[in-house]
Amino acid sequence: MPMPTGFIPGLTRLLPLVGICILLISCGREKMDHAELMRALEDPTRGLVRERSVGDLVLRCKYIPPELSAWREMRGREFNIAEYHRRVAEHARLQTFALQIAPREDKGAAVSMRGVQGYEEFAQRTAELNFGMEDRLRLVSETCDMHPVLASLNNSYELNRARTVMMVFAPREGMEELPQRGTVEVVFEDDLFATGIHRFVFDAETLVNAPQLAIGSSQK
């Protein structure tokens, strides 16, 4: 069926504009090399990290952009750009955060040993940090309240006193995407170190527009 002739010229004129808009949106995110990106993620003025201090502990919740997650997964392997983009696309559907629990001053016992008396308690603490964090973490927004699909403790090989838990939130069945507007709260219910409940509040749009990894310099 032929298209109405009056419509096509108007649409044709608009197409370049639409193309430019799409290009601008996709390129809108700042590109950074790995070191710059790591600094940006730690910069509180960018709104990608939130921090709370209670007692002698500091809790820091940091957003991890999809490109960084993909890059980390591929670290140590032969870099393949197509594979990288496939992984980035996968991670773009998720939201990943890192929760670091660190002593306020870098001295004394490691976080995993705080308040622990004896091997049994240490084993319990280790088990809870490794396998019990999903229940203690939530992503809350106007449209969702969910636990992470994955919450894993980074292995620090006891080399430092802080511990970091990576958490990944995925859209539930029936949900097209995770919140893109309004606020996103990562809630940590801490009954391990008795620092209470923490709400790390992020602006969803800030997360969507977080800087991305300039892969050209980082895959080497």
Binding site: V54, F193, I197
Partner: peptide, 10 residues
């Protein structure tokens, strides 16, 4: 005990 103590610590 832990959650209440946590809030008091905060």
């Amino acid at each position: 005990q832990k959650l209440t103590q946590g809030a008091l610590n905060q």
